[in-house]
């Protein structure tokens, strides 16, 4: 429990009454007048896994970057609130954020080759958060790094400790990233497309590993994904994003098996499944940020769009156990 106290000492915790670990309310992010994220509302309970799904440019990664404070004022304009364990993240000072990042919030990036530093051995890189956040000694760091490497399924961890990233395969590098992300037993794990550069067989291994570790630590996880079927397999809840907005959010089996929003339906009909006869792509593409339509942002591509969709933004409504933002839900 001493890790919790590390955080408690440094950051004013306002309330512990809230049941959710992460509470995003009406969160908007603007960059050069363009609304990149538009009134995002989300919450995540302890132990829950959430998938952010959508095309490139939907704002999935931007939301993840904002959550870990890599996108903050004054570079971008921010509105609304992000609360993590009752702490308002938008008001946090950079120094305090640094105590959180890599400690209470772990990160897994898409491209492990790019994310790992080629100049340092993997052992050093796993030890960095241990030294920085937990203040472990060099020998304790080494011992814990071996443990961590073992827990992420790296054979002969003692030998690999002094390996440089380029000496490992893509799957092994991703495992090292997971070891770094989980080094301080984070309460929230953010994984931005953790497996899109890997083979399906390795993807399944890595996903199983992440889920297994997250469950073992009783942490929550947010996955940024573009593969809907994978989302159905690993996430408890799914938030479908389009052009900076959440258009549908709810339990993954409902959202993905019986989607209500036309965009989710469109996405699902594009997914290649085994032995599928036809694919129906969504026509067009996400509009550029400086030319977003006034009403529903999906209206220009939507098969069900009517006059009102082009004029007014649909309010989010609760339907069938999920949140949907559409004027015409069947």
């Amino acid at each position: 429990m001493n890790q919790v106290s590390v955080l408690a000492q440094n950051i004013p915790v306002e309330s512990h009454a809230e049941a959710s670990l992460l509470e995003v309310r009406d969160f908007s992010l603007r960059r050069k007048k363009a609304t990149v994220l538009d009134r995002i509302t989300l919450s995540l309970s302890p132990g829950e896994t959430l998938g952010l799904i959508g095309e490139s440019g939907a704002g999935k990664s931007t939301l993840a970057m904002a959550l870990i404070g890599l996108l903050r004022a004054p570079e971008v304009e921010i509105e609304g609130s992000l609360r993590f364990r009752g702490t308002e993240l938008t008001a946090l000072k950079e120094a305090d954020f640094r105590r959180l990042r890599g400690n209470k919030i772990g990160l897994i990036f898409q491209d492990a080759t790019a994310a790992l530093n080629p100049c340092f051995t993997v052992g050093k890189q796993i030890a960095e958060p241990l030294r920085r956040h937990l203040g472990l000694s060099a020998s304790a760091c080494r011992a814990r790094a071996v443990e961590l490497m073992q827990s992420v399924g790296i054979p002969e961890p003692r030998l690999r400790l002094d390996a440089y990233p380029h000496e490992l395969s893509g799957g092994m590098q991703q495992r090292i990233m997971i070891a770094i992300a989980l080094a301080c037993n984070p309460e929230l794990l953010l994984a931005d497309e953790p497996t899109s550069a890997l083979d399906v067989t390795i993807q399944a291994q890595i996903m199983e590993l992440i889920l297994d570790r997250v469950r073992a630590l009783n942490s929550s996880a947010i996955f940024v994904l573009h593969d809907l079927a994978l989302g159905a397999q690993v996430c408890d809840r799914i938030a479908v994003m389009y052009a900076g907005q959440i258009v549908e959010e709810g339990p993954s089996e409902r959202v993905l098996n019986a989607p209500l929003h036309p965009y989710t339906q469109g996405l699902k009909s594009c997914v290649v499944e085994l032995g599928m006869p036809t694919l129906t792509p969504i026509p067009g593409q996400i509009p550029p940020l400086d030319a977003m339509p006034n009403g529903c942002r999906f209206a220009p591509r939507c098969p069900k769009a009517q006059a009102i969709c082009g004029e007014q933004r649909p309010e989010t409504q609760t339907r069938d156990g999920r949140q949907v933002a559409c004027w015409f839900i069947d």
């Binding site: 067989t201 993807q203 199983e208 593969d227 809907l228 159905a232 397999q233 098996n257 499944e273 085994l274």
Partner: peptide, 15 residues
């Protein structure tokens, strides 16, 4: 085939 993500089957690290 088993490792291929699908909607109707759980995640399976088959290899």
């Amino acid at each position: 085939l088993q490792a291929f993500p699908r909607f109707d089957a759980p995640l399976c690290a088959s290899l």
